[in-house]
């Protein structure tokens, strides 16, 4: 039985020297940005859902609605199902494809107001140990109750996309330690449609059934 080490991530936000004032520039920007920027603009909201602040689904969709007033396109961009993508470059291409497909050349030139440009950002990620470990399922269950939400966030979202894995860290460890049934059930959850705290409860409920 291997030991699971709970880690967490902290982000330092980078401002890229790239801005967009219309859809054309957004598409061009998307082509140029590094993958950590795609990650930042599509996952930032998940961390911030922990607070009571109402956040938009992702930065691209939010800007398209608020700065360009293109509600339908915003909704379509927000509806891209991130969980279906294991690689950030695939996700980036999907956004470009969806935006192109749902706009006509005239719409792509419509400019936002001054000071409402889309500022492309990215992040440096620091992965730090939490000091919490688990050597079996009951221990894992107990630790999962108390670890910080940023630890759940890291193991479920970031590690999967950053290591190009089909599954998240929890599933990986559970599979390796003969808890495949638990791993399979966890794999069915769409973590993008709930707060991190609700995700914690959902995983705890699944494990509970197997204890």
């Amino acid at each position: 039985m291997s030991t699971f080490e709970f880690k967490k991530n902290i982000h330092l936000i980078k401002i890229l020297n790239l801005k967009a004032t219309n859809i054309n520039e957004l598409i061009e920007g998307l082509k140029k940005i590094p993958l950590n920027s795609v990650y930042y603009h599509t996952h930032r909201f998940l961390k911030q859902h922990q607070s009571i602040s109402p956040e938009p689904p992702n930065d691209f969709a939010y800007w398209i609605e608020k700065a360009l007033n293109m509600k339908k396109l915003s909704e379509i961009v927000a509806s891209v199902n991130i969980v279906e993508f294991n690689k950030l470059w695939e996700l980036k291409n999907k956004y470009i494809e969806v935006i192109k497909k749902n706009t006509i050349p005239y719409e792509r030139k419509k400019k936002c107001n001054k000071n409402e440009e889309f500022v492309f950002m990215g992040c440096k990620t620091f992965i730090i140990p939490t000091g919490d470990t688990a050597s079996n399922l009951p221990e894992f269950y107990e630790k999962l109750k108390i670890i910080e939400s940023s630890s759940i966030y890291f193991h479920i979202f970031e590690s999967r996309l950053r290591i190009d894995s089909q599954i998240n860290d929890f599933q990986l460890w559970l599979n390796e330690n003969s808890y495949s049934a638990v791993a399979e059930e966890i794999g069915k959850i769409d973590p993008y449609n709930m707060t991190v705290e609700n995700l914690r409860r959902k995983i705890l409920n699944i494990i509970e059934k197997h204890l």
């Binding site: 330092l12 936000i13 980078k14 401002i15 020297n17 801005k19 440009e117 500022v119 950002m121």
Partner: peptide, 19 residues
């Protein structure tokens, strides 16, 4: 380091951080 993404300039080539 800038306090807002809107304060930054696109002609700055060194890493710009938002803090």
């Amino acid at each position: 380091v800038f306090s807002s993404p809107y304060f930054s300039k696109t002609d700055i080539e060194i890493p710009q951080y938002l803090i």
